[in-house]
Amino acid sequence: MIRLHRPAPRPRPDTIVALIDVVFFLLVFFMLVGRMDATAPFEVRPPVAGVGEPLPGGGLTVSLGQAGQLALDGRPIASREALLAALRPRAGGGDPPKVRINAHASVPLRELLPLVTALEGIGLTSVVLVVTPTPP
């Protein structure tokens, strides 16, 4: 009986290295393009404005939903008083943190403006409203 041996396939390191290159490239690309912001547990569609300044990174994110729901850095907060109580210890120091308000476009101003006033009232000196230049 004749046994035919197939020649062993040659390892091809080149192709897998090219694959790793592509995957690395994609990985770095998505890490640079995306933002790792805390997302609110409810829908927040920021208002559209073409004149905003670039949003700086860092700081605290206060989300304000359409029905007045509040969240701090992605965690839901029951009331404005609870939010202020959570922020007050951090606002007391010499360098209060930046706060960005991520408000839904259709939230009534009777929810938004008192919130801004209250944040200013506990000593926060940098509060910004998040907008988007492109409608989603």
């Binding site: 998505f30 995306g34 912001d37 300044e53 670039p54 949003l55 940098s126 509060v127 409203l129 988007t132």
Partner: peptide, 18 residues
């Protein structure tokens, strides 16, 4: 990273400034 990142372009309007 593709799933967890948000790709919405965000700007800001200052409300309270030092």
């Amino acid at each position: 990273f593709m799933v967890t990142s948000t790709y919405l372009d965000l700007d800001m309007i200052p409300m309270v400034e030092r």
